[in-house]
Amino acid sequence: MVTEFTPWQSLGGGVLIGLAAVLLMALHGRILGATGILGGLMRFNDPADWRLRAALLAGMASGPLVLLGLTGQVPAVDIPISNLAIVLGGVIVGVGVSYGGGCTSGHGICGNARFSRRSMVATASFMVTAFATVYVTRHLIGG
């Protein structure tokens, strides 16, 4: 499936992601990482912290609804893969980000923005394996 090259939307979206990361640090003193937010929602020993994460998650999930209100369209989620691949990918992502200590938002934006060497190494690692995986699934076994 070919997708349209959207440099301006992607740049604009990225600017908003960066802005959200800076605001969360300025107001709440935290790294904006999806892995950390979700992981924290699975712990129940600090109710105030849990509520803060739940509010962040609720805001995130409201993003597509706001865009629906503004543009009349739900943002595209096109899925060119099987449900089995979704489940398999989901479990693997969950295990990987647990050990790697973060994902595209936490390491890729927040960590790299403060020049954390750990985040730079993590980003290089997940980018390389993602390129390699798609090459394998689409050109070696998928064809």
Partner: peptide
């Protein structure tokens, strides 16, 4: 750090979703 992140990339490449995109 390196292997965990590498494993994450494999799952990202299989599914096309990362946590920050999926939430």
């Amino acid at each position: 750090l390196v292997l965990g992140s590498g494993v994450f990339g494999i799952g990202w490449g299989i599914s096309g979703f990362c946590p920050g995109g999926a939430l």
